[in-house]
Simulated assay, not measured.
Amino acid sequence: MYPSAPPDAYNKFSAGAPPPAPPPAPYLQQPMSAPRPGGGLTRWSTGLFHCMDDPGNCLITCLCPCITFGQIADIVDKGTCPCLAGGSLYALICASTAMGCLYSCFYRSKLRAQYDIEEGECPDFLVHCCCEYFALCQEYRELKNRGFDLGIGWSANIDRQNRGVAGAPVMGAPAMPLGMLR
């Protein structure tokens, strides 16, 4: 009553191995980085366009990027360039030449070198020239995710680390010392 199907109609691959899977789309592939002698490079903890992971910093950076830059410069320079000096110099460069991105690009490269972070798909100068505010927000989040409180500066972060305080107290809870407790 019904026509019979050929023997391999339901099993297309009965005569051999199945075809290989198609290669992933280029935008899904991860960038390759050159391995370092002591280990591989790490990735940024957040993406370039993940500004809303920290909406407060996003707002401050949009309104006054010199504040965010000053906080980043203070931590990256390990206190030798205070927040006020770094932010003021950045604001002066932006106001006089509109090329603050070249100055901030230097700090992005320095940050990547300190923490062995891969450059990514675009060079640092291009990221800062095309996406200045996004880059500043990403660098801020990176330092914050590495345990720095950028609002208090380098010396206060070092004092906090020397006291053994891992992070800010949560809802008034007392700080717990690091290490093994019994």
Score class of each variant (00 low, 15 high):
Ile93Arg: 03
Gln30Ser: 11
Ala113Glu: 13
Ala34Pro: 00
Thr97Cys: 11
Lys110His: 09
Gln161Lys: 15
Met99Tyr: 12
Cys58Thr: 14
Phe134Ile: 01
Tyr27Gln: 08
Tyr10Arg: 11
Glu142Pro: 09
Glu118Ile: 05
Thr46Glu: 12
Ser109Trp: 00
Pro26Cys: 13
Thr61Ile: 07
His50Thr: 10
Asn162Met: 13
Gly38Phe: 13
Ala91Ile: 01
Cys129Gly: 12
Leu48Glu: 14
Gly164Phe: 03
Pro82Ser: 03
Pro22Phe: 00
Ile72Gln: 03
Arg146Ala: 11
Lys12Asn: 07
Pro6Ser: 13
Leu150Val: 03
Ala21His: 05
Ser109Thr: 10
Met171Ala: 13
Pro26Asn: 10
Ala166Ser: 08
Cys129Ser: 15
Gly70Pro: 03
Ala73Glu: 08
Ser109Lys: 03
Leu181Tyr: 11
Asp77His: 10
Ile67Val: 15
Phe49Ser: 06
Thr80Ala: 04
Cys130Arg: 09
Gly120Leu: 02
Pro123Leu: 15
Cys58Met: 12
Asn157Val: 04
Gly164Ile: 05
Ser109Leu: 02
His50Met: 12
Gly167Ala: 15
Cys66Asp: 04
Pro55Val: 11
Phe69Met: 13
Asp54Trp: 04
Thr42Lys: 13
Asp74His: 05
Arg146Trp: 02
Thr46Tyr: 09
Ile67Arg: 01
Pro18Lys: 15
Ser155Pro: 00
Gly39Phe: 05
Pro35Met: 11
Arg36Ile: 11
Pro169His: 10
Tyr27Cys: 10
Pro6Ala: 12
Leu136Gly: 03
Met176Asp: 05
Ala91Met: 13
Ala166Lys: 09
Pro26Ser: 13
Pro24Trp: 07
Trp154Val: 02
Pro22Ile: 01
Phe148Glu: 01
Trp154Ile: 01
Cys101Arg: 01
Phe49Cys: 07
Ile75Glu: 01
Lys12Leu: 11
Met52Ile: 07
Gly16Ala: 15
Pro7Gly: 02
Gly164Cys: 05
Cys137Asp: 06
Ala9Met: 06
Pro22Cys: 00
Ile152Tyr: 03
Cys81Gln: 07
Gly120Glu: 04
Asp124Glu: 08
Leu150Arg: 01
Cys81Ala: 06
Pro20Ile: 04
Thr46Arg: 15
Met52Ala: 10
Ser155Arg: 09
Gly87His: 10
Asn11Thr: 08
Asp53Arg: 14
Met1Pro: 08
Arg43Pro: 00
Ser104Cys: 09
Asp159Leu: 06
Pro6Ile: 06
Tyr10Lys: 07
Gln71Val: 01
Gln114Gly: 03
Ser88Met: 08
Ala34Tyr: 14
Asn162Cys: 08
Glu142His: 11
Cys51Ile: 05
Gly153Arg: 06
Pro37Leu: 13
Leu178Ile: 09
Pro174Asp: 10
